[in-house]
Simulated scan of single mutants.
Amino acid sequence: MRISKRIASASPLATTAMHGRVDQMKLQGEEVIDFSIAISHFAAPEAVRRDVSDMALHDVLPYTAVGGAHGLRARLVEKLKMENEIDALPEEVIVTNGAKQALYEAMYAMTDPGDTVIVFRPYWPAYLATARLLGLEVVLVDLPEVLTAGLLDTLPPARLLILNNPHNPTGKVFARDELDLLEGWLARTGCGAIVDESYEKLLYSQPHHSLSSAGQWRKLGIVTIFSASQSYAMMGWRCGFAVGPADVVSAMETLQGPITAAPSALTQAACEAAFFSGEPHHLVADYQGRRDLVMDMLSPVKWMKVRIPDSGPYIWVDVTALGCDTVAFSERLLAEKRVAIMPGDALGMPGFIRMGFISDDIATLRKGMAAIVAFGNEINQDSR
């Protein structure tokens, strides 16, 4: 059977592929510590489990409108107003099977093959993979510590810019001043934007601001994506939504119809329950404690450069001082120490590694981090 050229040249996401390898090793009876991806040790909020259980046991589960039940979209409009200062209408909201579906549909609706898309590096691999599937030209720009007018002025003409705020994997949270500069640049250049705010609740020190809260998002062509996966420990629920100009959302619905139609009624019930379950203070406090523990363990290591993340479930580490290939480093670490990490190459930055710190218990977290440090020390010693 002939496979199409557009998919034959594509590869599975490195992040999910590594996690799949670890799962296979575990099925074969091997003990592996998996830091390659962030899967919360918390359960979904009680309200989510209760509401979905009640619906599954007692309610008829009908089809809903492709973009989501009107009542849910109206409720999400309330969430956007209260928490993100985004004024929207129900028809400007679309409910999706997680953030990835919203990303794909928004990029499909807002671009044509050959268009240029700007992506900051390091990047969530789905941004690049989706752009390639859609035949887009990607311009990679190194993520700055602070976004400045000078940097924005160096960017090339583009159809779309993708912003991840809070940022995966560095944990950077963009300040309001930075977003104001970006808004001005979008207005001057006519470039649209997709803003992924999936980690909006996982904040440790800096407040989160939505780019669309400035009020010109319709005119500027900004689509903002939200997800319950990380913010509410609901990875397997596949629960997300997006808000954008009505014509863009309508186009996304046109695409979503033949792909999946609406998310399941159970997913939609979970979506409403999650986004109105209150702030996940206990979850964030636990994650912050884990982050601080990892920073205490890694900061003294001479061959590591670690910046404390302001958000998210990952530690992003510069290991260029080891002078080794980070793909080979991660492969050897998995084979010899049974610890999985994500090489920065998969996120556009060789010489770096990404490590999730929210899975398993504290003892396992300590054990895995200690194994990584010991392994790197061996390499560092051998290179002398």
Results as ranks from 00 to 15, higher is better:
113 P>S: 11
270 A>K: 02
18 M>S: 06
287 Y>M: 15
49 R>F: 10
343 P>C: 07
100 K>W: 00
332 R>Y: 05
106 A>N: 06
40 S>T: 06
313 P>N: 14
147 L>H: 03
145 E>W: 12
83 E>C: 08
371 A>P: 10
288 Q>M: 13
221 G>L: 08
271 C>R: 02
267 T>K: 09
15 T>W: 01
186 L>Q: 03
69 A>V: 00
278 G>N: 03
312 G>C: 12
294 V>F: 01
23 D>K: 13
239 C>Q: 02
163 L>N: 00
150 G>K: 11
127 Y>I: 05
205 S>G: 05
376 G>I: 13
168 N>C: 04
361 D>R: 02
328 A>M: 10
10 A>F: 04
290 R>F: 00
151 L>G: 07
383 S>I: 12
1 M>I: 12
77 V>A: 08
29 G>H: 11
364 T>G: 01
231 S>M: 06
30 E>Y: 15
369 M>H: 06
215 G>A: 10
27 L>F: 15
363 A>V: 11
16 T>L: 10
39 I>L: 14
148 T>C: 03
138 V>K: 10
269 A>G: 02
294 V>T: 06
141 V>A: 04
283 L>N: 08
36 S>Q: 09
139 V>Q: 08
320 T>V: 05
7 I>L: 09
149 A>H: 10
136 L>H: 02
14 A>T: 12
111 T>W: 12
170 T>Q: 03
273 A>N: 01
27 L>R: 15
355 M>K: 13
193 A>H: 10
272 E>W: 05
107 M>F: 15
65 A>P: 01
378 E>S: 10
241 F>E: 03
130 T>Y: 03
297 M>L: 15
73 R>S: 09
175 A>P: 00
189 T>G: 08
19 H>G: 08
52 V>T: 14
67 G>M: 03
248 V>P: 01
352 F>Y: 13
93 V>H: 04
175 A>W: 02
17 A>Y: 08
285 A>H: 12
307 R>D: 00
328 A>F: 08
47 A>D: 00
82 M>V: 09
185 W>N: 07
380 N>R: 09
247 D>S: 14
31 E>V: 13
374 A>N: 09
300 P>Q: 09
138 V>P: 07
229 S>T: 11
20 G>V: 07
132 R>W: 08
207 P>G: 12
53 S>W: 10
54 D>R: 15
124 W>G: 02
298 L>T: 14
30 E>Q: 14
115 D>I: 01
56 A>Q: 12
355 M>F: 00
332 R>P: 04
372 I>R: 09
367 K>R: 13
46 E>A: 15
134 L>E: 03
176 R>A: 11
147 L>F: 08
287 Y>P: 04
82 M>Q: 15
298 L>M: 14
71 G>N: 04
36 S>R: 07
52 V>R: 08
339 V>K: 06
159 R>H: 04
86 I>N: 05
125 P>M: 06
298 L>N: 05
146 V>T: 14
247 D>A: 14
155 L>I: 11
318 D>P: 07
231 S>K: 13
192 G>M: 12
330 S>E: 11
33 I>F: 06
338 R>H: 15
353 I>F: 04
174 F>I: 01
103 L>F: 04
258 P>R: 05
375 F>M: 07
264 S>N: 02
2 R>C: 04
244 G>L: 01
197 E>V: 07
383 S>D: 09
360 D>Q: 07
307 R>T: 03
383 S>G: 02
111 T>N: 05
311 S>W: 00
85 E>F: 11
213 S>Q: 14
344 G>H: 01
186 L>A: 02
